[in-house]
Amino acid sequence: MTDTTVAEVLAELAALEDPKIREVNEKHGDEHGVNLGKLRALAKRLKTRQELARELWGTGDAAARLLATLICRPKAFERAELDAMVREARVPKVHDWLVNYVVKKSPHAEELRLAWTADPDPVVASAGWALTTERVVKQPEGLDLEGLLDVIEAELKDAPDRLQWAMNSCLAQIGIGHAGHRARAIGIGERLEVLKDYPTPPNCTSPFAPVWIAEMVRRQDAG
């Protein structure tokens, strides 16, 4: 499929459209109706295609943008390009895939993390916090964890939904991975009660930080 055009890919995505999937997705703000397994199969067939990925992103179509994150070459994007893409990505699933599959693999990730975390746009700021959480888990050296907890304690309760979710994830991962900060992280969670009543399916861990931390630490100790 080396000569595949954007029009051909869009036609294939349109053929995969399922109204029932769209109906479910739209309840979460995700305006697409493509089965993600089939989308990934299409990406596997296309392989890495950076220019096609750029063109698909440029269509603004949610399914096309999801596909673009799977077939692009993350390290090929300039910092300014990624910044613009995150500001355009208002569909939650597109935003998540862009941050997780593209930005986290970029050589510009740390610069963008620092720039985005304090951005006045809460969706952009949530991307910054997602990158911070990634560092808390994988490369905490040099991070001011106490300073992060100070910000979370002050701002988590009143943060807009997506930013709140990202900051809460950071709070939980600090508590899970850093025993010296665990008591404070749990205490912040207990006082603020953010996501305490979040509906959690059976066999899933609650996103309420004190419960999340306790469960993951239990698993670490058991393993």
Rank of each mutant, 00 (worst) to 15 (best):
L10A: 07
Q139R: 11
R54T: 05
A130I: 10
D221V: 13
A172L: 10
V102I: 05
P19W: 05
M85D: 07
L143F: 08
L42T: 12
E26W: 09
E215M: 04
A7W: 00
A64R: 06
D158Y: 11
L82R: 04
A64H: 05
D119P: 03
R22K: 14
F208L: 09
I176D: 07
L148C: 00
P92W: 03
L149S: 09
P210Q: 07
P74E: 10
A43E: 02
L16Y: 08
A154V: 08
T133H: 09
A185P: 01
G60K: 09
E155D: 10
K196P: 02
A109H: 13
W97T: 13
A159G: 13
P199F: 04
I174E: 11
E17N: 09
V34T: 12
W129C: 02
L39F: 07
G60W: 10
L112R: 02
E78R: 13
E155P: 00
D119F: 00
E110I: 00
R218H: 14
D161A: 15
E111I: 07
W97C: 15
G189D: 07
V24Y: 03
T205Y: 11
K44G: 15
D197T: 14
V91S: 06
E146R: 14
R65S: 07
L98Y: 02
P74L: 03
A7C: 00
L143K: 11
T117H: 07
R22L: 12
V103Q: 05
E23Y: 06
P160T: 14
A154F: 09
R219N: 13
A68Y: 04
I71F: 03
P140S: 04
N203M: 15
S106T: 01
H95R: 03
R162S: 01
A115D: 11
K157Q: 11
L82S: 08
P207V: 11
Y198K: 15
E78P: 03
